[in-house]
């Protein structure tokens, strides 16, 4: 047997230092080449994925362990130039932590509304103005958006909310007091309303 390794083996086993991804991210940011920056955020209602464009927060998603699905949707609907950039998400993370600790009642964040349009966007903007701990019905929100007979459309718009918690669609319930639906699961809606003291009679 040949004691000496072949040159092919030597090449195959060649070691290279890991690339400096942090430096790449810094430069990509400086040169405005990152259209969507994202990071995951842990929360009492499960893992969230926060994504920002230069305009503001565009998505806060319940990942349910499927980060790739969320990123693919962003790639399709916003831009494929997506990079993981935890520092760009620091403000969102801090405000969410404060919210879940019960010390923050209002989010102070720029929002990128580009994932919604038309009446749905009006509904979501109206929803964004519902105060902490307050409950509105689908019909209330529809009225605030300019068409009180469009509560079904309002429900659909809220179901497509890409920035839950921060655009507080959990504060919208059925006429008559039923909780209605919630994309992340009803237990999350209950948790958030309980946190805000909205379920106490």
């Amino acid at each position: 047997m040949n004691m000496k390794k072949t040159i092919e083996e030597e090449l195959r086993n060649m070691n290279a230092p890991a690339p400096d991804i942090t430096a790449l991210l810094d430069r990509a940011m400086t040169e405005d080449l990152v259209d969507v920056a994202y990071a995951t955020v842990d929360s009492p209602v499960g893992q969230l994925l926060a994504a920002s464009t230069p305009k503001g927060l565009v998505t806060l998603a319940y990942t349910e362990g499927r980060i790739e699905d969320v990123l693919e949707r962003l790639s399709e609907r916003v831009s494929p130039r997506i990079m993981e950039a935890p520092e760009r998400i620091d403000t969102v993370r801090r405000q969410l932590d404060q919210y879940f600790e019960g010390v923050r009642k209002d989010f102070d964040l720029d929002i990128d509304w580009s994932l919604s349009s038309g009446f749905a966007r009006k509904i979501l903007r109206a929803t964004a103005r519902i105060p902490y701990g307050k409950l509105l019905t689908y019909r209330d929100v529809a009225r605030k958006a300019g068409n009180e007979w469009a509560s079904r459309a309002a429900g659909n718009a809220l179901g497509s909310n890409s920035i839950p918690i921060i655009v507080p669609c959990h504060r919208v319930i059925r006429t008559g007091g039923g909780l209605g639906g919630y994309t992340g699961g009803l237990s999350k809606k209950e948790f958030l309303l309980d946190l805000e003291g909205a379920l106490e009679v």
Binding site: A16, L71, P80, I82
Partner: peptide, 29 residues
């Protein structure tokens, strides 16, 4: 559907770095 760019980094950055290390040496790679 175009994969999010981060996936290209995750999946291929090590291979690209290896290729470049062999091609131009570790200092310039």
């Amino acid at each position: 559907m175009k994969p999010p760019f981060q996936r290209l980094i995750d999946d291929h950055s090590a291979a690209v770095k290896r290729f470049l290390t062999a091609s131009v040496g570790p200092t310039e790679a």
